[in-house]
Amino acid sequence: MKLSENAILEVVDLHKGFGNNPVLNGIDFEVYTGDVISIIGASGSGKSTLLRCINQLEMPGSGEIIYRGENMLARGVNINEYRSRVGMVFQSFNLFNNMTVLENCMVGQMKVLGRSKSEAHERALEYLSKVGMSAFIKAKPKQISGGQKQRVAIARALAMDPDILLFDEPTSALDPETVGEVLLVMQTLAEEGMTMLVVTHEMAFAQDISSQVFFMHEGKIHERGTAADLFGNPEKAETRDFLSRFRSGRQIAG
């Protein structure tokens, strides 16, 4: 894969194993501005690990993660600055329990980006109202529902003005009734041109918002294509198999 001028992020031959268990077996892809890439696949196929390797919550075994032309796995790279450019939304929200909703969205801006308190406050309010949480700014994370937590987590990530947002199964830990509100926020972001990488089990959602879909199988991107191609006309047997299992509702999510 050649180094492209305008790719924000390039993943080159990424490998990762836990002990003797290979999880990622050579992943290659590029992300351009405005891409919305959904990553689907069975549990254990390496989707979450891939996402966590991208912002180095897991250290990849080998390969390159090139962000704006610079390999982020090289020694001496300021990993904290890189992480502030690549937002992450977790399955389990990971809101800071010792802070209010508002403080959750301010602390990173002030500590990492060095913004003033008033600017951080203003931006936090802007993004919290974008996700419909401006009425809850004084609440603590334990006082709000799962879907609300996830929307705050999205606002927290957005407040950092990231180049890319990574979503790691953002609705998998939610009650069915709160899934919709989170998907709606994500859909709005996608329509506004946010660059997103989404690991998800919500197939209908992936089909609707994605510019590209990756099907992961045994630690590789087994098949990739537009949402229409991959869902409508999958080439590989494993992809068809996975999708049909999913459609018949026998897939065990998680």
Partner: peptide, 15 residues
Amino acid sequence: VDPGQTEGAKAVGMS
């Protein structure tokens, strides 16, 4: 403290 708290902080770029 839940390791998720550390991950959340790391993910916004905190040292």
